[in-house]
Design a binder for these strands. Structure first.
Lengths: 208, 208
DNA sequence: CTATTGTCACTGAACATGCGTTCAATTCAA
DNA sequence: TTGAATTGAACGCATGTTCAGTGACAATAG
């Protein structure tokens, strides 16, 4: 046998990426073999090398695509007119929603950094920092305005992102809390942690 | 050659665990071979099997020892008399200090869960949840007292721990901020996120 | 203080298996 | 009929683990 019936490059290519994303997220880059990926794609291992230079590039492409998508989506998301507190809420909601919709990619982006070559690592770290700086800029503006109060904007940015990204480690659709409810609670905690004054009328508790 | 001069079981055993902890943390469980570990211990790979049944047990033992140590240290740490807000601060400081002192073990405990067999996974998840419940109990008490204000104690416990543990991903001794300063800032954010009223006299900012 | 013994700690080779990757051959789609 | 998509075998190497063999040490005997 050689070429298979129904084989098409514009199908196998994307499928490779889908499968690799899912398997890397589930079992980890090092624990997934090219033969496993090929089996799920429905192809022999050799055929994968028509679509990726090697395993490392496959990982890097997945991670870079994800980070590019995050930054692009953030840039396109309509930043609300208003004070930094409003923009912080916008950021928190954006972050939770975007990341909830791509749990696998997020997981890989956080877990597999150490499996990148130094060059690839540097590229992705730069993108990650760029995203962090978006949040930091909001915190700085809030500090200047007086609508937020954080002792150290750099540190707070990392702390808040760690908290927000943590949602992904436990949230599963259909659990005790709805996705919207979880989002509201996290937003509430983020705003409080950043020293925002309680919004008018929200009182001491948020309810739904 | 056979037995080496100066060889002693009470030295090689602990060394194996030290080396494995460091290498697993640096490169990941799957990426570290028994031969690599053996080389750093200063021994041939076969000798490791005098000290561990297999690679999986080695990982599990390291992770379980860590979680046992966390829970034991927390149980022994003198819980302060006082309201939940005070106890939350105590928890936050305990967590940051204990985890900062064992960065490698913490990293492994978070990253390598998926490399455990289902049975070992269950054991460790149980220990992790036990620790989470310690924090949750404080939050519940605070909610009842009125000294804290969290919309959902279970969720808040996970969120706060994610934030606190995030310190380990970036903090390095000798950086821009001292360990104590970082601790203070995180404690400030944790208390705020949990809806604690500002401590008398602390005003809007913490300074040092 | 020396000789002898037994066990302890370790070596080094071997085993079967799996890995990432390459490539000539082959078959299907256009 | 041509070129694209894929196979399947092969490469060299690394993996976790086992085990017979052996040198080094501790305890004992003389």
């Amino acid at each position: 046998m050689a070429r298979k019936p129904g084989s098409r490059a514009d199908i196998t290519g994307p499928r490779l990426r889908e499968v690799a994303l899912r398997l890397f997220a589930r079992d980890g880059y090092a624990a997934v073999s090219m033969r496993q990926i090929a089996a799920e794609v429905g192809v022999q291992a050799g055929a994968l090398y028509l679509y990726t230079a090697d395993k490392q590039s496959l990982l890097f492409d997945l991670m870079k695509s994800h980070m590019d998508a995050v930054l692009a989506a953030w840039a396109e998301s309509a930043a609300p007119e208003g004070d930094a507190k409003l923009r912080l809420e916008h950021f928190a909601r954006f972050h939770i929603r975007f990341h909830a919709a791509r749990a696998d990619a997020v997981f890989i982006a956080y877990m597999e950094m150490r499996n990148l070559t130094p060059e690839n690592f540097a590229v992705l770290e730069d993108l990650r920092k760029r995203y962090e700086r978006e949040l930091e800029a909001i915190l700085q503006a809030g500090q200047a305005e007086g609508t937020l109060n954080v002792p150290d904007t750099k540190l707070a940015a990392m702390a808040l992102i760690a908290m927000l990204t943590g949602v992904n480690t436990w949230f599963r659709e259909g659990g005790r809390l709805s996705r919207d409810r979880v989002e509201d609670i996290y937003v509430d905690m983020v705003l409080k942690a950043a020293g925002a004054q309680a919004p008018a009328g929200s009182g001491e508790n948020i309810s739904r």
